[in-house]
Design a protein around this nucleic acid. Structure first.
Lengths: 229, 229
DNA sequence: TCCAAAACAGGATGATCATCCTGTTTATAA
DNA sequence: TTATAAACAGGATGATCATCCTGTTTTGGA
């Protein structure tokens, strides 16, 4: 009744077939990513995925011999890309680490409030369900967490080379940022309310005295004073 | 080979039976809690639970008519109790909110390092898998998050009535604390390394100038200065 | 002692699921 | 054109799973 059946590109009823391996693989990954995120890995059946993607069992098995292989592809191609697109790239483009973090938090909060539904952090969603289930899952997910943290820490170090963020430990700042975001998304998902994201961002900024528009030298003096115990 | 079969209290092979509804219910909950946490809800089969608990299908169905009812009981009785025991009670007994938070972080980190295995936060583990799956699950889990946050915020307010924590927003502090802990546990679980908990705790403390042993008045002055923009 | 309800035993059932297997069609290179 | 492998179709299969059902034992009150 409700589920739309995905039709192949051409709606001709003829028996003509056009091989499109990349397209078919992409469609399967699209559907799998969506289902793994909203229903979870174990709650997603390959039958449902096949129906949603308009793909037969033979095709699915050809591209992804097992369900685990499919999930691994979702993690390595889609989840990693999501972290890259929503976090790493915007952060690297930002004028500073702190402003980048602030921008990401607010962008995500705004997006969630607009669509009125919180699906959670793609990485954390799968990490919780799959980290203990399989060593391959775990290492793939851990790699993404690690890259995320390192990108933030690198940005802080970059700020420091420009004369800012004197009193900040880059790795510590990165760990706390990722943790606060992950935990805030977890709460936002459970409460179905993105407000906690903004609240956590304020808490994150409240502790640190650095403000946005100030030049590096002034920022540095303020930070130095605080660092002296 | 590996799985021990739980035997009933008496190892007599006689057909004598002793009704023990509370004990049987407790044993089922013990096994279900463990399995839901380590394998997840969907990956746990009632057959496995029955075998692990040494319980028949009839007995299981008598106490928990559906798998959902069992999970709801685990959430409301066990997960809530875990949050109460490891967070709320220690926090309320602590001399201040900040010291309580610090103590919990370090106690959990030490415990995880001792047992050499990170199973994750009981609440977050189930929240990620079940929040979007069912409205009853979601509201039960959201209630626990809410109580957790409120207990922390109340402790901050208590500190403020005693003259401390002048510049801290209680709800903001609580949200950030829960988020940082939840996210840190998520990373710790994925990396199987509790070190990130200590790192996040340091990041949490680094921002705020309040130190532990100082009397309220001195703390207050320092905080005031920072609050004035 | 007796009876009704609770507590428990254990198998039946129908549905679901991931994987596999045998073919058929399409693309590619020789 | 032809041979070969990739791409895809679609059903078979065996295992697993949650629930249900019938029957037996135990318990507690009348």
């Amino acid at each position: 009744m409700s589920g739309e059946i995905a039709t192949r590109s051409g709606s001709r009823s003829s028996k003509r077939r056009t091989n499109d391996p990349e397209g078919m693989r992409r469609r399967v990954l699209d559907v799998a990513e969506d289902s793994f995120q909203t229903r979870g890995y174990h709650a997603s059946s390959l039958g449902d995925l096949m129906a949603a993607a308009g793909v037969t069992g033979g095709a699915l098995h050809h591209h992804f011999p097992t369900k685990k292989a499919l999930a691994l592809a979702v993690i390595e191609e889609r989840v990693a890309a999501a972290v890259q697109d929503t976090w790493i790239a915007p952060l690297q483009a930002a004028p500073s680490a702190r402003e980048g973090v602030r921008a990401v938090f607010e962008a995500v909060a705004a997006e969630l409030e607009q669509q009125g539904f919180v699906r959670g952090c793609p990485l954390n969603n799968l990490a919780h369900e799959l980290s203990l289930a399989d060593a391959d899952f775990r290492s793939a997910l851990a790699r993404i967490f690690s890259g995320w943290r390192q990108a933030i820490a690198d940005k802080v170090r970059e700020d420091q080379e420009m004369g800012g963020e004197g009193g900040t430990d880059p790795d510590r700042f990165a760990a706390l940022t990722v943790a606060a975001y992950s935990g805030a998304m977890s709460m936002a998902k459970t409460a179905q309310d993105a407000g906690v994201l903004r609240e956590c961002l304020k808490g994150l900024e409240e502790g640190s005295p650095s403000q946005s528009g100030l030049p590096a030298k002034r920022r540095r003096r303020v930070l130095r004073r605080q660092t002296i115990r």
